[in-house]
Design a protein around this nucleic acid. Structure first.
Length: 277
DNA sequence: AGTGTATCCTGCAGGC
DNA sequence: TGCCTGCAGGATACAC
């Protein structure tokens, strides 16, 4: 579910609430979302203050005292929900997996219907190793079209598969891959190696444009995604192709197609995104 | 190196 | 109403 813009939206909401807060205790409801025994996870985080809240790729990072990092990968249906105090009525998590109880009574809950997500407590060094295996952040100043082009031409993979590979570029998932390729007027199955410098410039601009616009809209809610306060993202209304197969291209009125490769759907306009040329 | 397939899970929509 | 199938924003492991 959540890609870079959704993780970024959550981080921005969590930051003012969590920075400076101290974790009093954790309650693990679903041990399988941890990658270590609950007792070990608990010992790693309990009693420590949250120093900073950051994002890397699709991961939300809670940097805590003693150079430790709580890395949250949201998977398909993961949510990080905050509550002023343990919730009684109205707004409650539906599939709580881990509760972080903060000093002062506030609560942070990792809620994950499908439990494809993960919550881990790592040392700073362990996190650095993990982060080094991820590709560049597309929104970083310093990430230029020439970097994208140089990386593209080393691969024979179709562009959509290339964009989903977190080792090559960080944070792009199936929604924004389709959207960026539409904006760049590139076919999802075009080979990465065949992309010209001019096309790479278009793709670079398209990726940054769609990710920034999605962040501005608070992310894309198809079904499950929610911000930390439970609100939905507004970017679903602004999608050009994702999930719009069978409807008219907003630019040329050709029917949007859905194709499946690499085990996942890709959406595109066959007129605006021809495979040849 | 890249692709297809399977796996981890739950919930929902659509067909009958 | 109920049952079945297929599908879903992610990530990984495997065989070919």
């Amino acid at each position: 579910m959540p890609e870079l813009p959704e993780a970024e939206t959550i981080v921005r909401a969590l930051r003012p609430v969590l920075e400076g807060a101290r974790i009093r205790r954790v309650d693990v409801v679903r041990p399988d979302v941890l990658r270590s025994p609950p007792s070990r996870f608990s010992a790693c985080v309990c009693g420590r203050r949250i120093v900073a809240v950051d994002r890397r790729a699709k991961n939300v990072l809670l940097r805590i005292e003693d150079d430790r990092v709580v890395a949250v990968n949201l998977g398909m249906t993961g949510k990080l929900l905050t509550f002023d105090r343990p919730p009684r009525g109205g707004r409650r998590p539906t599939h709580p997996a881990v509760h972080f109880r903060l000093v002062g009574g506030a609560l942070l809950t990792f809620d994950d219907t499908r439990r494809f997500g993960a919550v881990e407590c790592l040392s700073g060094a362990e996190w650095s190793l993990r982060s080094a295996r991820l590709g560049p952040e597309p929104l970083d100043r310093g990430y230029h079209a020439r970097d994208l082009h140089a990386a593209l031409v080393t691969s024979r993979a179709p562009l959509r598969s290339w964009l989903l590979d977190q080792k090559r570029i960080a944070g792009i998932g199936n929604i924004y891959a389709s959207e960026a390729l539409y904006l760049a007027e590139l076919h999802p199955q075009k080979r990465a190696r065949s992309v010209t410098r001019a096309e790479a410039t278009r793709l670079h601009r398209a990726i940054r444009r769609v990710l920034r616009a999605a962040i501005r809209a608070g992310g894309t809610t198809i079904r499950d995604y929610r911000n930390a306060d439970g609100t939905e993202g507004e970017f679903a209304q602004k999608l050009f192709v994702y999930g719009r197969d069978g409807t008219a291209c907003l630019r040329c009125r050709t029917e949007i197609l859905r194709i499946v490769f690499g085990g996942r759907s890709a959406f595109f306009c066959p007129t605006c995104q021809p495979l040849s040329s």
